[in-house]
Design a protein around this nucleic acid. Structure first.
Lengths: 208, 208
DNA sequence: ACAGAACTCCACCTAAAGGTGGAATAAGAT
DNA sequence: ATCTTATTCCACCTTTAGGTGGAGTTCTGT
């Protein structure tokens, strides 16, 4: 009998995490060696147990999933991390890819897919579902928001007026308008309310 | 040995649902007799298996959780249904209460709480976590949006202008402004962007 | 040295949004 | 019968948002 695949499960919902652990525990060639509920804990558990594969939710308290991937791969570049997230319209997925995640799974996918993806990644393969690859391509093609535009967009979502945004960022209202005009056309919407919902829908900005 | 508690698990994410089933399967006095991934299926499985307790997620495709609770309790008023949801700022929770759900659990709660709540509800008890009860009270106290105001708010979130909303609802733009003025003060915000995020945050309107 | 991108700001304009203070009607509750 | 609430609409006003076209600066990569 070959050695089982040693897993670390990271999810901030105890019920979901417990479910995953119970589920994976029933699979012959897998063992869950550790659990974590946020990014900091994930790093600690990784460093202690050196799992073969890590299942990582992106939406975590305190230290988020993307940051955790960065932390872990800075120390162990060979780390094999699978992103497991609920939201398919999630900008963080692209950040996770850049951070070096090996595979991306939606919780809406079947249990069989989950298990076969874990085995694939354990063997060193990379797996990106077609649906996500498409969005990735579409996003890479689409215009990128600049840092400043993101800061403005974030404040639009939080309901700040142009005047307030100007004083937040200590720039003039004219500049705020410039950024807004630019980001509106990049997002393909024609007013700030549209920008707000687009930002939320695509996961560019989160309501915390 | 007493008869085990017979459970129906309803969740549209196969991985989460599979996890719950695996988790609950390890508990001595519980058996999962059926699963469902949407409201229609939940009703069918309920009618076939007549479970003792139903675990119901609220966010489901097609027929939603609240509607499913209505359907089931219309036929079997004694049905014991536990709402299990990820989002704590969720207007649907109140709708679920009115539909007759017996308990409300957040996926962020511990596995022990989940299990003890299932046992409590099976024994006929009702359980509402303090955090949710508080929000419920706060919400009952707070001003209610009227039907028309909700229709307007929904369109604000979808990025429609006052003029467009007016023609959508075949009323004048003046009336739209009246409704908006009213709902802005009810929501405690001062522009439509604030109304939009407030609506999303409180779960009054959903981005589908 | 130079192109390109990002960031900053200006003036000027139009259109849309929001505030105020009314008022009329219909339906449901007391 | 009366009161309340939701709904509809008006006029008038101020503020905000958005569009257009331009311009100067800094920084990075070539």
């Amino acid at each position: 009998m070959p050695a089982p695949i040693r897993l670390l499960v990271v999810d901030d919902h105890p019920v979901v995490r417990g479910g995953l652990v119970a589920l994976l525990g029933t699979v012959e060639d897998m063992t869950v060696v550790a659990e974590a509920s946020d990014g900091r804990e994930a790093f600690e558990q990784y460093s202690v147990h050196q799992p073969d594969v890590t299942l990582m939710d992106l939406r975590l308290r305190n230290v988020g999933g993307v940051e955790a991937i960065h932390l872990i791969r800075a120390e162990w570049p060979q780390a094999r991390i699978i992103v497991l997230t609920t939201f398919d319209g999630d900008e963080d997925i692209y950040r996770a890819i850049q951070a070096g995640a090996k595979a991306y799974l939606l919780k809406g996918m079947s249990v069989e897919e989950l298990i076969s993806t874990i085995r694939s990644v354990h063997q060193g393969k990379v797996r990106i579902p077609a649906a996500i690859a498409e969005k990735l391509a579409g996003r890479m093609a689409g215009p990128q928001l600049t840092g400043r535009e993101l800061e403005v967009l974030e404040r639009i979502v939080r309901g700040r007026s142009n005047k307030e945004i100007a004083s937040d960022l200590t720039i003039s209202e004219a500049t705020v308008k410039t950024h807004i005009n630019n980001l509106l056309s990049k997002l393909g919407v024609d007013d700030r309310t549209g920008a707000s919902t687009a930002a939320l829908q695509r996961g560019i900005v989160h309501l915390d």
